[in-house]
Design a binder for these strands. Structure first.
Length: 439
RNA sequence: GCGGGGAUAGCCGAGCGGUAAGGCGACGGCCUGCUAAGCCGUUUCCCUAUGGGAGCGGGGGUUCGAUUCCCCCUCCCCGCGCCA
């Protein structure tokens, strides 16, 4: 949620942000109107209450003095009736204002690339030595802007779907039969590899000062709406029938809600959490995309970085989270690029966002494995996460970044590390705890 | 699931129809060579703000007035039951 004071004192900031997001500003105008109506009604209602409180105190006085309070009682009741009327409209207006206020997107960072959709996302960094099939070299050079090392592979890599099914490391047909499309059974060494990867990722973040956290996998509506805009996000979520509960789409949401309605001590900041959880997503808008395999699925496991920081530190921590993720993929020796996400593709919650896209040789594409967002005080304000400062209580800033979405990182390993015979070499950093060098 | 007890400010905790004690912590000030102690003040939110309003887990009700009485709900603790 944006700060209502910006709406009152500097609405041009919001109009400008909407323009940069290529979004309609009607919502801003509506919020301004509702807020000024609300303040007018509040003034009237408060004045009447002040009057009534005076009378109520007088009644107490009269009773104490042994006088008859009936005359004052009648006056108080009359005013009370008047208050009731204002209260009804006041509450209605307040509710409508808050609904609108919560729908206003975060202020887009002025440094984010200006474009109306993902076609304006800007690759800004390249790293690693990519394996590229002969026929994909031109496409690779375009995608890497020629800024990345590569070697032409000696064989055409198989898609992860073919390889995993052939090697009996996954069964997608059985999953489709019992659960539907976009589900999977993972088998044998792939399960071990996933588990090893998670263990490595958790250790990686714990060493860097993150508190490990396994959160609830279901949240109620209020918490979900605090972490994101529920109305915009509803299509993504699985609801539990007959309960006010939703399966989480990311551990970002329960971690964001962890400190809701609390005042943190400044000396405890930053608070860093590494969340591990399954993620459940309907993928409603993704018909026809990645229909095969485990790249885009309804359920996957994720390890997430989350930070609560002082406002003045959020830019630095945004870079730190991104650097952690870069270092992680570097250590796995998976080639990647970093993409600066365009204003029109930020989503409502993020002010600035960087994605890491791994190189997938079989798909001959860079594809998202990490998304690192600076949310500023947008979630903190919704969830009322504050911290004590010398000048008073202020909202913290929150940031989040994927470290791994297991399915996507596994696919990246399978595509980048496969050999001509269909075996998969295990990345060096995983070999010890995996207990194998090849599967 | 059943019975009993509970939820008060950052934390602890009194109040149990007349308008939120006290303590701890934190912050600011006084004092001090410095620190500590001591003393004073501040320490939930909202508003067109020397003032006013709201707020005692959440929602309703009774009353001129509810932290206090009544109803519903949530969560926590104890005991019993059930289950992994």
């Amino acid at each position: 949620m944006i700060d209502v004071n910006i709406l009152r004192k500097n609405p041009e900031i919001l109009f400008d942000s909407q323009k940069r997001r290529f979004q309609d500003d009607g919502i801003i105008r509506e919020a301004i109107k509702l807020d000024s109506d609300w303040r007018e009604l509040l003034k009237k209602s408060n004045d009447l209450k002040a009057e009534k409180n005076k009378l109520v105190r007088e009644i107490g006085e009269r009773i104490r003095r042994g006088e008859n309070p009936d005359e004052v009682k009648i006056k108080a009741t009359e005013i009370d009736r008047n208050i009731q009327q204002y209260e009804i409209t006041l509450r209605e207006t307040e509710e409508r204002r808050d609904v609108i206020l919560r729908r206003i997107p975060n202020i887009a960072d002025s440094e984010a690339p200006l474009a109306k959709d993902e076609s304006g996302n800007l690759p800004i960094y390249f790293e690693g030595n990519a394996k590229v099939s002969g026929e994909d070299v031109d496409s690779f050079l375009a995608q890497s802007k020629g800024k990345m090392e590569y070697e032409v592979s000696k064989f055409k890599p198989q898609s992860h779907v073919d390889l995993l099914v052939k090697r009996n490391l996954a069964n997608l047909e059985s999953a489709a039969a019992v659960s539907g499309a976009r589900f999977y059974y993972l088998l044998g060494d792939m399960v071990l590899l996933e588990s090893t990867l998670e263990h490595y990722a958790l250790r990686f973040l714990q060493k860097r000062g993150f508190t490990l956290m396994e959160p609830p996998f279901m949240l109620n509506r209020e918490a979900t709406d605090g972490a994101t805009d529920f109305t915009a996000f509803e299509d993504t979520l699985y609801k539990v029938e007959g309960e006010d509960l939703y399966l989480i789409a990311t551990s970002e949401h329960p971690i964001a809600a962890y400190h809701s309605n609390t005042i943190l001590e400044e000396s405890n900041l930053p608070l860093l959490y590494a969340g591990i959880s399954p993620c459940f997503r309907k993928e409603a808008g993704a018909h026809g995309k990645d229909t095969k395999g485990i790249f885009r699925v309804h359920q996957f496991n994720k390890i997430e970085q989350f930070a609560y920081v002082r406002p003045e530190d959020s830019r630095v921590y945004h870079q730190k989270l991104l650097e952690n993720a870069k270092e992680f993929y570097r250590s796995l020796e998976i080639p990647f690029r970093v993409v600066d996400i365009a204003t029109g593709d930020l989503g409502n919650v993020a002010s600035r966002k960087f994605d890491i896209e791994a190189w997938y040789p079989a798909q001959a594409q860079f594809r998202e494995v990490v998304s690192a967002s600076n949310v500023l005080d947008y979630q903190a304000r919704r969830l009322k996460v504050r911290y004590r400062t010398k000048e008073g209580n202020a909202f913290v800033h929150t940031l989040n970044s994927t470290l791994i979405a297991t399915t996507r990182t596994l696919v990246a390993i399978v595509e980048n590390y496969q050999q001509e015979d269909g075996t998969i070499v295990i990345p060096k950093v995983l070999r010890d705890s995996m207990g194998k060098e090849v599967i």
